[in-house]
Structure formats: C-alpha cells, structure tokens
Amino acid sequence: MTAVHPAGIPDELPEGPAARPRWAVAARHLWRNKLLLLAVIVLLAVVALAALAPLVAEYGPNAMRISRRLQAPSAAHFFGTDEFGRDIFSRVIHGGRISLAAGGLTVLVACAGGVLLGVLSGYFAALDGILVKVVDSMMAFPDILLAIALVAVLGPTLSNVVVALGIVYMPRVARVVRASTLVLRELPFVEAARALGVPTHRILRRHILRNLASPITVQGTFIFAYAILAEAGLSFLGVGVSSETPTWGTIINAGQQYARQAPWIMLFPGLAIVLSVFSLQIIGDALRDALDPKLQKEV
C-alpha cells in the first residue's frame, strides 16, 4: 500500500485510542477486584464439584446406611449424614448438578422469551402498547406465587419447574431489553441501515441484538441467582421436583424435621445456595460495570 492516498490525504491520520482486546480489559478488571476474583473462584469450585460429583463423592447420593444415621460432620462424612445415613456431601454436590442446571436452563428460557418480547415491543411501536401491558401484568404477581401456580398447572417435574421459573423471570428480561431497544432504535447507525434498505430482520439481528448482549448477560447472571433460590424455595415448599431427587431445595426440605438434632443437613445445602448466589450477584455487578463502555475507558 502506498503511503499517500488517491484522495490526496497524507498518511498521518491520527491513530485511534490504543486498542486493548476485550478479554485483556476483563482480565485486568478481575485482578484489580479481589472480591470478584474470589466470587469467580467460588463459583467455578461449586460448578466443578457438581460437574464431577460422581468422581468426587465417595458414597452415592442415595446410598443408605442406617447404622450411620444422623452423624455429625466428620472425616468420613464431611457434611454429616441424614436420617437414612445418606452422605450429605454427596447429596449436596449431586444436588448442585440439578440446582445449577435448573438455574442455567431457567436463564435460557427467560432470556429467549424476554428478548423476543422486549425486542418486538421496543422496535415495533404498534406492538408496544399491548406487549407492555402483558409484561406488566405478569410482573404484578409475586414471583414464587406465580411459579407455584404454574407448576401446579404443569405438574411437578424438573422441566416444568424450569419452564415456570423461565416464565416468571421473562418480564424482567423483557423490560430491560425493551428499554435498550427503544434507545438503540433511534441511533444513527440503525437509521443508516434503514437508509440503505437493509431488511428489518437483519437490522434486528445485527444492530439491535448485538448491542443487547451486555444488558442480557447482566440480567442473565442475576436471574441465574434468583432461579437457584426459587428452585430451592419451590422444592422446600414441596411443589418443585419430587423429594427423592436431591436438589439443594429438597435436601433442606427433608432436613427441617431434624433441624435440632442434625442442623448440618440444612446448613450445607444452604451454604451452597448462599455461596453460589453471592458469587453470581458479585459477577453480575462486575459484568454490568465492565460491559459499560463509558466505564471501560477508565480502567
């Protein structure tokens, strides 16, 4: 390439601000923020334990040994045992697989529905009036109550719990997505695409959805945390998955009868919930800051 252009402009155009790759910015963030680092480590540990549960656990989650019932935490049983002599550690990490999967799938359902509703409502003014009313009326119900009602209608299986919670959290995503879409729709780069005659579905995909990635990611982390809590809550109330399946909620539910004699049955799944939810909240907060381009420059 020649240094001088046909347009006669010398090649001394100012370089833009130094470009730093996105992952490098993220890594720096992580290192500066020790709390965030801790949250990421804790979450990764919880996920790893759950994923590798069959390899890590010495006992099966449902293996009963009545001779060892209601034992306090010890070297043999880190988290103690329950009334059937089942190992709580094994149950907690096996339960984590279901609780985390339910949380993750709930995020997918809530985001898929919420993004669809939000983008349609934000981009097409004609649909906005009706969709906003639908979303607002869904938000009028208390979360757990709506979830209970939906599970009662659909039946108490894990996939129905996920669908119910997905519907419950859908309006949160929809509102954030709608608000961002309303802003994006008016920006000149969207106007430029319209002026070029770019088909609407492509505008939605390239210009709207791509720029919604950060708000959706942030909402997703928070919903992940809420969903873990809500799944536990539903299981605790007995309307979630059946009590034979170990999830953090069902373990706590089963342990409440022995809360005085064997508090460890409730304590450890409870701790697992608290640690995961805390970590996710901290990560969600950090993502919100990191993905805000205005804050990014200061880092």
Partner: peptide, 11 residues
C-alpha cells in the same frame, strides 16, 4: 450523519 460516534455500530 453528524455524530461520528453513534452513527457506527460499536459491535
């Protein structure tokens, strides 16, 4: 457009 910032999709 007037604004060289908002007239290009940042992504």
């Amino acid at each position: 457009f007037q604004d060289p910032y908002s007239s290009l999709n940042p992504r």
